[in-house]
Amino acid sequence: MSTLLEIRGIETGYGRIKILHDVTLDNASGNIGLFGPNGHGKTTLLRCVSGLLRAWHGEIRFDGQVITNLPPRRIVERGLIHVSQGNRLFPDLTIRETLRLGAFPRRARAQEAQNIERVAALFPKLRERWSQRVRTLSGGERQMVSIAVALMSEPRLLILDEPTLGLAPRIKDELCDAIKLISQAGVKLVVVEQDVEFLLDLADHLYLINHGEVAAEVRPGDSMNHEAIMEMYFGRQTSALT
């Protein structure tokens, strides 16, 4: 299985402050999981992949083609869809309007009706609130809308940046099930998540991002258990402290 997303030697940051130092992720198979302490470059890497942030150095390939520093809409058109953290979305649009907007890429328009049905089946809760403004939704519902919008754009690779941030456990489970279904339908995932349990559930290949670098990785064959990950995570942090 060839890798859908290849990242080689990416360096980037904000203004003059460099956040990522030579990040390479080119051997991933299956769903990718990123973890690591906050503020160490996970979101920055995702923003760089989806074109929101310019890469200073390095190369990003999607399905074999170079997409480094393309405008975000060109990247969206190829089927790489980024669901960003926080999900402010468009507070004054209704769910239905937001989903229509998701089908903006030309490739996705033909499938719009079909995708709406698919999304509604995946998130039955949303269908009840079809013409409600997004600002009136709960955090969990808003997260569902974010993922639903992404599905409307016919993704081949879905980037999820901390999808369960601040959600109640029950909603988390619901969301995790939905995301699994999406993955089973053939959409590859890149997931950033603090909840290790959740991450282990979804991702095949894990990378620890620390100080703007890939500090460690867990390949699909490796034994991945909760403790080992926690040790990797916190072991590094405590060693950094001492």
């Binding site: 809409r73 402010r88 468009f90 907007l101 998701g102």
Partner: peptide, 26 residues
């Protein structure tokens, strides 16, 4: 502005520019 996709896109730009990039708007 309320019924056509392009109009929706205009309203969306007013609300969240980053999210617009991510749904592929110019």
């Amino acid at each position: 502005l309320t019924r056509m996709r392009l109009g929706l896109a205009l309203r969306a730009v007013a609300q969240n520019e980053d999210a617009c990039h991510l749904v592929g708007l110019n």
